[in-house]
Amino acid sequence: MGIKSKFKAFFLLDDDDYQLAEETDTAEQEEIKQPKSVKKNVVSLQSVQKASKVILFEPRVFAEAQEIADHLKNRKAVIVNLQRIQHDQAKRIVDFLSGTVYAISGEIQQLGPKIFLCTPDNVEVSGNISQFLPESDIDNSRW
């Protein structure tokens, strides 16, 4: 007595029932090998991100540089306006932010007199600003 016969006898299956069960098993095995619905639009989780933000910051004291660095660590770009702070404090902030940007593989660029753009590595900046006019020339120039 073969294994098929023993199996049929154990479950009391007719030949038709056994063949149906065998076809179902074969179909399930094929589905495992080739799923019916193949997903073609696979997206890496790393590419799915929240909307990017740009933070505008105008520090009044050096202690606020820590908050700017925290935004950079959270992968947000920051525009820093240092026009309302003393020159020596502004210089310390730029030095601190330069170190922070270096640590996170980002960039820092000057946009204008005492205005800087700090970006983390996930933000790409294209183009550059080549020349800054003295403030006296800005007041007399025409748009």
Score class of each variant (00 low, 15 high):
Asp25Ala: 15
Ala9Phe: 05
Ala9Gln: 11
Asn140Trp: 11
Phe11Thr: 04
Gln66Thr: 11
Ile115Pro: 01
Phe96Glu: 07
Met1Ala: 12
Leu56Trp: 05
His87Pro: 09
Lys73Phe: 14
Leu72Met: 08
Asp70Glu: 15
Pro113Ile: 01
Leu82Gly: 01
Cys118Thr: 08
Ser52Lys: 14
Pro120Leu: 13
Val80Leu: 05
Val101Asp: 06
Leu82Glu: 00
Asp16Tyr: 12
Gln131Thr: 08
Val123Met: 12
Glu64Arg: 01
Asn128Met: 10
Thr100Ser: 11
Glu30Phe: 06
Ala69Met: 10
Ile3Phe: 09
Ala103Trp: 02
Ala21Thr: 05
Ile32Phe: 08
Lys6Gln: 07
Asn122Gln: 08
Glu124Gly: 02
Asp16Met: 10
Val101Arg: 00
Lys53Gly: 04
Val78Ser: 05
Val38Leu: 12
His71Ala: 12
Ile55Ser: 01
Asp137Ser: 14
Asp70Leu: 15
Ser98Lys: 13
Lys76Arg: 15
Leu13Cys: 10
Ser105Gly: 06
Leu13Gly: 09
Ser136Cys: 02
Lys6Ser: 06
Ala103Phe: 05
Arg92Tyr: 04
Gln66Ala: 10
Gln109Phe: 11
Lys50Thr: 08
Leu12Arg: 09
Pro35Lys: 01
Ile138Phe: 12
Val43Cys: 02
Glu28Phe: 09
Ile138Lys: 14
Thr100Lys: 03
Asn74Trp: 00
Gly127Cys: 04
Gln19Lys: 13
Asp95Phe: 10
Ile129Gly: 00
Thr100Asn: 02
Ser47Lys: 11
Ala63Gly: 06
Gln19Gly: 02
Phe10Val: 05
Ser130Gly: 10
Phe116Asp: 00
Ser37Tyr: 03
Ile79Cys: 01
Leu56Met: 09
Asn128Thr: 13
Glu64Trp: 01
Gly112Arg: 04
Phe116Glu: 00
Phe10Asn: 04
Asn128Tyr: 14
Lys73Pro: 02
Ile138His: 04
Leu117Phe: 10
Arg92Ala: 09
Ile129His: 04
Ile115Leu: 10
Leu82Asp: 00
Asp16Pro: 00
Ser98Thr: 13
Ser44Glu: 09
Gly106Leu: 04
Lys33Val: 06
Phe132Met: 09
Ser47Phe: 07
Asp88Ser: 11
Asn140Pro: 01
Val48Glu: 11
Phe7Gln: 05
Asn41Glu: 14
Ile115Glu: 03
Gln89Phe: 06
Asn81Ala: 09
Ile93His: 00
Glu107Asp: 15
Glu31Ile: 06
Asp121Phe: 15
Asn81Asp: 15
Pro113Ser: 02
Ile129Val: 12
Arg142Cys: 02
Lys114Thr: 08
Ser98His: 08
Val123Tyr: 14
Glu31Gly: 07
Thr119Ala: 14
Leu111Lys: 05
